[in-house]
């Protein structure tokens, strides 16, 4: 971990970045912002950790817990809303056994998250599975894909 953090630090100093770009680099490298990583930078840069957390908690892009291997992002924009995104999300929660306040499955296979709008409204409702945009989704299509992702994992074992 230390090596990656050093690399981010070098890049940060070189490009005269700011706290946000630094946090974005940490998030990109680890998938979330761990306390250890923040404390490491806090010491190196002599910036209080509270400032990092103050900025990070303001922006929805940052996560503070590790996320699942597969990230499913449900668009909740207006067009997706009127075309039934809520039902898709409820279906996904049921399939992944997630309660209302959970977003990652216990086996760390799936994370389900919402996004305000990905701007692909003319193919609403939109679900993004591992960065691949899926337009005009239906519950059936979606559940099939989730099942095949689960299947992949079983084969891998």
């Amino acid at each position: 971990m230390e090596q990656i953090l050093e690399k981010i630090l070098v890049e940060y100093r070189k490009s005269e970045g700011n706290i946000i770009s630094l946090l974005q680099d940490i998030e990109d490298s680890f998938g979330y912002l761990s306390e250890d990583a923040i404390n490491w930078f806090s010491k190196k840069l002599d910036i209080p950790a509270s400032r990092f957390f103050g900025v990070a908690t303001f922006y929805s892009q940052f996560h503070f817990k590790p996320r699942g291997r597969n990230v499913i992002t449900a668009c909740c924009g207006t067009a997706c809303h009127v075309k039934g995104s809520e039902r898709l999300i409820n279906g996904l929660r049921k399939e992944l056994n997630l309660s209302e306040d959970e977003d990652t499955t216990k086996n760390m296979e799936f994370t389900l998250e919402k996004v305000n709008c990905v701007g692909a409204c003319s193919i609403a409702p939109v679900i993004i599975i591992n960065k691949q945009v899926r337009g005009k989704t239906t519950s059936d299509k979606l559940l099939k894909e989730i099942k095949s992702l689960k299947g992949l994992k079983d084969e891998g074992n």
Partner: peptide
């Protein structure tokens, strides 16, 4: 920073 849900002019 086109954040309005339902808008994608700037992206396009």
């Amino acid at each position: 920073d086109e954040g309005d849900p339902g808008a994608f002019m700037d992206r396009s």
